[in-house]
Structures are given as C-alpha cells and as structure tokens.
C-alpha cells in the first residue's frame, strides 16, 4: 500500500494500537486536516482499535478518503468478536463491561462527524467513523 490516504491493518497485538495511530495520523495529515482534527481522528482510532484488541482479541482497521459535500476520511474497525449485547448501554458515557472509563464509544462519536455501529452477538462488530474536511 503506497498511498498514505488509504490502507488496511490487522489489529492483533497491543502494539498495533500504536501502529494504527501512526497510520491514521499520516493519512489525516496528508488529506489536509488541521492539527485539532488530526488529534480527534487519531484519538478515536486509538479508542476503537483498543476496543478490538480488548473485547474481540483481533480485527482489522481500514481507512480511505470519501467524498460528499466535502472531502473526508472514513475509517472502519471490524472484528469477529463476541459482539455488543446492549448497544444503547455501550453508547452511554461511563458504561464499561471491564474496568474502562466507558468513554471510548461515546467519546469517539463526539470526536467524529459521523459514527455507525453494526454489531451482532457471536458474529462481531463493525464501527464506521467519518470526519469531513471543512475549508
């Protein structure tokens, strides 16, 4: 994958969270996002890749530019883990099935412009986030 704008990365180890942050930072900077938006996107990617690592064990992150009314960056986090049983609860700030702060999912939603989650128990979870470039 030579383009910094798009790619795919396996999330298998704790260290892959750092690698994911680096790849997403490179893509967001290359697309022209400002420093605060870059930080928002990288932080959301850190939360969502950590969720994959913690709750599903492994999965993948994909990222690519998108276009609509604006140009933007889309990231998809997919795993074949246990799935999320109660989505409403999972999206509530402060809910954690482990010893987390319960901020990863609701916080990522606030940091991004769009977020959709599809999850099926026993099948896995897919989280898609988008941020638009505004000039």
């Amino acid at each position: 994958m030579s383009s910094p704008y798009e790619g795919e990365m396996a999330i298998d180890t704790e260290y892959d969270i750092v690698m994911a942050r680096k790849a997403v930072r490179t893509a967001a900077v290359a697309l022209g996002f400002g420093v605060t938006d870059v930080t928002r996107i990288v932080t959301a990617a850190s939360e969502l890749t950590r969720n994959i690592y913690l709750y599903a064990g492994s999965g993948i992150m994909r990222w690519h530019p998108v276009s609509g009314n604006f140009a933007g960056l889309e990231l998809v986090f997919e795993d074949q883990g246990p799935g999320i049983a109660d989505m409403t609860r999972a999206m509530q700030p402060g809910f954690s099935s482990g010893n987390g702060l319960g901020m990863g999912l609701p916080g990522s939603k606030r940091l991004m412009d769009e977020m959709d989650i599809v999850s099926e128990i026993g099948k896995g979870t897919s989280v898609r986030i988008r941020k638009w470039l505004r000039r």
Partner: peptide, 14 residues
C-alpha cells in the same frame, strides 16, 4: 498539554 490534546481530551469526556 497541547491545545489540540486539551480540546480532544475534553470532547472525549475524560
């Protein structure tokens, strides 16, 4: 703490 980090951390709800 950098400004961008302060903004993000607050928005994340930390």
């Amino acid at each position: 703490m950098r400004a961008s980090v302060a903004i993000t951390t607050t928005q994340l709800g930390l």
